[in-house]
Design a protein around this nucleic acid. Structure first.
Lengths: 219, 219
DNA sequence: CCTACCGATCGGTAGG
DNA sequence: CCTACCGATCGGTAGG
């Protein structure tokens, strides 16, 4: 009667590996491996120039296996971008919180310093393939996916707005703050193209150079 | 005796289209058509995502014909970039010359205004696919081709150096001028990602916003 | 997650 | 510059 009450594939399942049921598989790890490999390759070669076979191989899988974790190549790209934005937003919130809890009153200038420094870290630090992929493979995303990523992106950028507004009010930032924000992001994001980690300037140097370039003396 | 003095293929030629000899073929035009089509498609879809068939069709040719004009797909990309840089440098030299010949003494600030305005025009104006392709398809170039493009690029950027140095000397630009140059280029080049021609801000608006953001009052 | 495979597309070429 | 074509590669799937 055992044979009758068991679900039809129970026997087959019992013959599998002993310590893992279907629900406990380390799918999360393999998925993460794929994401990391995809981020690195998409950044180095671009989305269209990277084959799903390349990604599979880099993650130690066979050519068909990525499609067990992701519906298609585009979904993998979207996942890389979403992962990147989540990390970036998390780091940004953490950095702002940590800075604010040291001394209580944080000047707008110091706020911007924290934001710039964190942005450069996200862009150029260790494990930094995700955000560059988001910045430079935007057009490879479908409309629906673009919208999803855009929402996280807007959240991330929204944190900057009151800081820049305060700097504008104090005369430390001249001109339309929203145009200034676009140009500041451009100046920082462009560093992806020329920054070399061990060379000449550190991320701290860049941060100070940016503040010097963008900000005036307080009136 | 006419028949004897004519070159051997004169008869054949005489049967062809009446107004064009082999040497007068509009090869230049067809090549230019390919370059224009390639620039537009490379910008919209990226180099790897654009097939040579797409480009041929956009130029009104069959799939094999681009290879009559260019050795391979990479050579077509390099040609787009070189063409873009030549135009950009030409425009830049013209703009500086025209500005300098109005009043004799051009302040460093006015020089920068001319350079920024011209750069935005090259980047965002009409026929503006070539430079964005150069900026965002850099990695798709072979080393040899990269070097060739890089030479033109250095020439273009070299014009900015003394201007920024002068602004630094007068206190209008703070911080290391070479880092400032990289960040200024970044701020401007990023506009490719967000600028919409008919919308809100004009290129003149952007130019003034950039100067406001980057420059201090003269000491 | 692997094996084996498919249809489509791609860069490029020979010959005219 | 076109026609006709080739070998290679690609995203993705069925079945286990």
């Amino acid at each position: 009667m055992n044979a009758i009450t068991l679900p039809p594939d129970a026997v087959k399942r019992a013959r599998g590996r002993p310590r893992k049921t279907a629900d406990e598989r380390d799918d999360g790890n393999r998925r993460q491996d794929l994401l990391r490999a995809a981020a690195r390759l998409f950044r180095q070669q671009g989305f269209a120039a990277t084959s799903t076979r390349d990604i599979a191989a880099a993650a130690g899988m066979r050519s068909g296996s990525p499609f067990y974790h992701f519906e298609n190549k585009e979904a993998l790209l979207a996942a890389v971008m979403l992962e990147g934005m989540q990390r970036a937003s998390g780091r940004q919130a953490g950095a702002m919180h940590a800075a604010a809890s040291h001394g209580q009153a944080l000047s707008a200038r110091d706020c911007l310093r924290v934001l710039v420094r964190n942005h450069l870290e996200v862009l150029l630090g260790a494990e930094s393939d995700f955000i560059p992929v988001m910045l430079y493979e935007w057009r490879s995303l479908s409309d629906v996916q673009r919208q999803a990523v855009n929402e996280l992106r807007r959240e991330y950028e929204a944190v900057w707005v009151p800081v820049l507004q305060a700097l504008h009010d104090s005369g430390e930032l001249q001109g339309d703050p929203s145009l200034a924000r676009l140009m500041i992001f451009g100046a920082l994001n462009w560093a992806v193209q020329w920054f070399e980690p061990g060379r000449r300037s550190s991320l701290d140097d860049l941060t100070e150079a940016a503040l010097q370039l963008f900000l005036k003396e307080p009136a």
